[in-house]
Write a protein that binds this DNA or RNA. Structure first.
Length: 841
RNA sequence: GCCCGAGUGGCGGAAUGGCAGACGCGGAGGACUCAAAAUCCUUUGUUCGAAAGGACGUGUGGGUUCGAGUCCCACCUCGGGCACCA
């Protein structure tokens, strides 16, 4: 390469008149269309053990994509594209969680067909996703509202029904007046509906449940086996809420009823000075039926509890009111008669619905006892060092919840709390008064909804045969096309003819169940349907399920921590036990992205603070939009759109574009295998590139896309510096091409375009991710820090591998170090190889 | 109230117990331009100093360590989860 064929670099960077401009919106749409036409990301061949299953939470089609979608798909796509470049066969399907209330609300308010509304939104989102270049496998697309899909949702329901994991019962359930339907416990947030924010009321209704409690222990035990964020695992652990204790019975004073209670503190039983039932407890209901005031009390409690819950949220103070019952109970250990109460602080659906009240050791009982003038009996003394006044009923101001030494408890006096617990439980079991028990906070999942835009519960009710599953050959039970959505209540239930059928067992009169399944049922198994979304003969092939499950990498929002993510785990365990595959968990690894917010608060239509993704895309292109999001912070952190700078990212991509174009021009008529520039400058550039390749590979593995981009910027800076020093040709191309390859998962369009302009055939996205040359990672010299008493006195460049003695000798030659050491005695010297030397004086 | 998590420049954020502030945004100055935009270059934690150089600095107070943004204890603030769970 001769000097005069090389354009002067400074000149070309300043003029750049001959370099085509970076115009993302003129190149991106064509490339996006080509990827779809070429079926570039459709996986061919078998779904086998070697296939990597990547999945992102499928969206609900409420309108066009919002920023949150663009964020999660940008994270997911960067991850997926990089995995492909590492040589993995990646299965990356996509679909829509398309059943839900907004479609039904649109139908009710505006008279549109919910299906038409839904599919129109889906098409709009699909177009946007393609425009943004997300590399999903479109051949596996599914929508949960397709009859071809919900046929199998109904089949899943029937599998659980046939195996006694789906059942119907009357229970006090959460009713949302706004949505006109019942809700699962997981959908009630702070007493309000997760969707509409209406105050939820409690009603007794007969509903369908999935027996999630059957798997409570396994759902808890398996948490350590999955690679999920600790935060999510902790939320599930708390939601499942396992507690160990004892169940034992108290007898009524008249000897007629035995009433079981659950306690985690059997050691405090001698302090049980009264007894409390949940207001609706059956024993209370029977014995109090004729008492004046009982009915009123029940009503008052139900009304009051909701209001008080709201009024006292966050205060930690809840008034405890109760009703003295017309009978007493007997404490089995003391033999004493103790008064019985009904009070709303005891819940019917936790434990046994009744408690032994120990005001000394439980804050709620303490408050209730004070309010009602009941005895507070000390049954524990603080261990050494404790404050005796805190455990003295005459002076204590709150319950004594610490452990200590048992007192006033007969034979158990003098034992520690832990020993007394064990001994009392041993004795309970020996006397057959009770047994060791484990209680869970988790309840069964209520799955039926009084709505119509969802899969109808595939059950036919028969007066003689009871509820019967719809035979598989009759699935799907379709939503009728002629529903009237303008009615109050459930359109499906009010259809004049739909529900009248014959019983599949006896052939007599049958009535369809008019409820539909919760949308979370749809999404609790969709990752299985992706394995064969177009096969109408089975839900999924067992072989493929065994090979592919669990999903290797799942990405999505933390808002589903105890909803979707818990339900999917339950459904997989249930289907495993029924025999449909061997996997025990749906998602092996989980990445939770943060939220996109604006000026500190969540974006929402009602607040009018939405940033529409396409405002950004239309201005700067998809690459800039994607890279801006990934550069703003680590994926798990929230992004405040007020703080991010798409224009900054756009500038950088433009700079990279020009830099690459200039190099293409600079090396146009030369042999790119050769390079110009000094050997030192070339080596410096190559070292910079290869150390970054190693670091970036690492950052990708940790999903730290923000530092990936920072290091790519460093390569660009090094390459520009080298170009200014006259380095062109092979070393410069190596730098730029490595950069483009490593940027490709993040900004797929500009890298594709520049890759081809650099003269390469084929897509950059089917290349192999760069590998660092180990030889270029070995340094010959390094900068060490010399400290005196931990304060930095000098930075010296020395050869690597120096001994402590040699390093010290060189360090002492430095003027600054010598000055700091003058007149003092060095007591010790710490040496960290190739990094640091610390004189302790 | 209980349980998690987090506090680093004007801003977003980097930092296997070993050079705090990588990378970028924003700011300042300059080059190019008739001018502006775009682009390029320099500079940018605070403070003392003409400079060389020094001091201070990761929410607060202690501690461990030769050495702490990083580990431990207490507290403050913010964010999240749960909320009468016996």
């Amino acid at each position: 390469m001769s000097e005069n064929t090389m354009p002067d670099n400074t000149m070309s960077e300043q003029t750049q008149g001959d370099v085509p401009a970076y115009e993302p919106n003129s190149i991106e749409p064509g490339i996006a269309a080509r990827w779809v036409e070429d079926k570039a990301y459709e996986l061919e061949g078998e779904l086998d053990d070697d296939t990597y299953y990547a999945l992102t939470m499928f969206p609900y089609p409420s309108g066009d994509l919002h920023m949150g979608h663009v964020e999660i798909f940008s994270i997911h796509d960067a991850l997926v594209r990089q995995k492909r470049m590492l040589g993995l066969r990646v299965f990356n399907p996509f679909g829509w969680d398309a059943f839900g209330l907004p479609a039904e609300n649109a139908a009710k308010k505006r008279g549109v067909d919910p299906a038409a509304w839904t599919y129109a939104n889906i098409e709009q989102q699909a177009d946007s996703i393609k425009r943004l270049g997300f590399s999903f496998d479109w051949s596996r697309r599914l929508h949960t509202c397709d009859p071809e899909y919900y046929k199998w949702t109904q089949w899943v329901f029937l599998q659980l029904f046939d195996n006694e994991l789906a059942y119907r019962k009357e229970a006090m359930v959460n009713w949302c007046p706004g949505c006109q339907t019942v809700l699962a416990n997981e959908q009630v947030i702070g007493g309000r509906c997760e969707r509409s924010d209406d105050l939820v009321v409690r009603r007794p209704l007969t509903q369908w449940f999935f027996r999630t409690t059957h798997y409570a222990q396994e759902l808890l035990d398996a948490l350590p086996t999955i690679d999920w964020p600790d935060r999510v695992k902790l939320m599930q652990r708390n939601w499942i809420g396992r507690s160990e204790g004892a169940e034992l019975s108290f007898r009524t004073a008249d000897g007629a009823d035995d009433v079981p209670v659950f306690t985690t503190r059997p050691d405090t039983i001698f302090g049980a000075t009264y007894f409390v039932f949940a207001p609706e407890h059956p024993v209370v209901a029977r014995r109090m039926a004729d008492e004046p005031g009982y009915e009123a009390f029940i009503e008052e409690v139900q009304l009051r509890s909701e209001i008080e819950r709201q009024a006292t949220l966050g205060s930690g103070q809840i008034a405890k009111r109760g009703l003295r019952l017309n009978f007493d109970m007997v404490n089995p250990f003391t033999g004493e008669n103790i008064p019985a109460y009904a009070a709303d602080y005891v819940l019917m659906d936790y434990g046994t619905g009744a408690i032994m009240a120990v005001p000394f050791g439980d804050q709620r009982d303490f408050e209730f006892a004070q309010a009602n003038g009941l005895e507070i009996r000390a049954i524990l003394a603080p261990a050494d060092g404790g404050d005796p006044a805190a455990a003295d009923p005459t002076t204590m101001t709150e319950a004594y919840t610490e452990y200590g030494i048992v007192t006033n408890s007969g034979d158990y006096d003098g034992l520690s709390t832990a020993d007394a617990k064990n001994k009392i439980m041993d004795d309970l079991e020996a006397k057959a008064w009770g047994k060791r028990t484990i209680n869970f906070r988790l309840r069964d999942w209520l799955v039926s909804r009084q709505r119509s835009w969802g899969p109808p519960v595939p059950i036919i009710h028969c007066e003689t045969c009871g509820p019967q599953g719809v035979p598989v050959e009759d699935l799907p039970v379709r939503i009728p096309a002629d529903l009237n959505y303008q009615v109050d209540g459930s359109p499906l239930a009010m259809h004049p003819t739909w529900k009248f059928v014959v019983c599949p067992l006896c052939g007599g009169e049958g009535i369809r169940d008019t409820d539909t399944l919760d949308t979370f049922v749809d999404s609790s198994w969709y990752f299985l349907r992706f394995l064969s979304p177009n096969d109408n003969t089975m839900p999924w092939p067992k072989d493929a399920a065994n090979a592919m499950m669990p999903v290797d990498q799942y990405t999505g929002g933390v808002e589903h921590a105890i909803l979707h993510l818990l339900y999917a785990r339950f459904v997989v365990k249930a289907l495993r036990d029924i025999g449909h595959f061997t996997a025990s968990e749906p998602f092996n690894a989980l990445l939770n992205q943060g939220q996109v917010i604006l000026n500190g608060s969540a974006m929402s239509k009602s607040k009018g603070n939405l940033v529409q993704p396409f405002e950004v895309v239309d201005l700067y292109g998809a690459d800039t939009t994607r890279a801006t999001i990934l550069f703003a912070s680590a994926p798990e952190d929230d992004i405040d759109w007020a703080d991010v700078s798409p224009s900054g990212m756009y500038k950088w991509l433009g700079k990279l574009w020009r830099q690459t174009m200039i190099e293409i021009a600079a090396s146009a008529n030369t042999d790119v295998a050769d390079h110009t520039g000094s050997a030192e400058a070339v080596e410096k550039l190559r070292r910079a590139v290869h150390t970054r390749i190693a670091a970036i590979t690492d950052d990708y593995a940790k999903h730290k896309f923000n530092t990936v981009i920072a290091k790519l910027m460093e390569i660009a800076n090094s390459a520009r510096e080298a170009a200014a020093a006259g380095v062109h040709g092979a070393a410069q191309r190596e730098a730029l091409e490595s950069l483009l390859l490593m940027l490709a998962p993040i900004a797929p369009f500009i890298t594709e375009e520049l890759w081809s302009r650099l003269g390469h055939e084929g897509s950059i996205h089917s290349q192999i991710f760069p590998v660092a040359d180990p030889a270029l990672l070995v340094k010959s010299s390094t900068t060490i820090v010399v400290q005196v008493n931990g304060k930095i006195r000098a930075r010296l460049t020395v050869a690597v591998g120096l001994s402590a003695g040699d390093t010290e000798r060189i360090a002492r030659e430095d003027d600054n170090v010598a000055a700091a050491l003058a007149g003092v005695t060095v007591k010790n010297v710490f040496h960290v190889q190739d990094r640091l030397l610390n004189f302790v004086v």
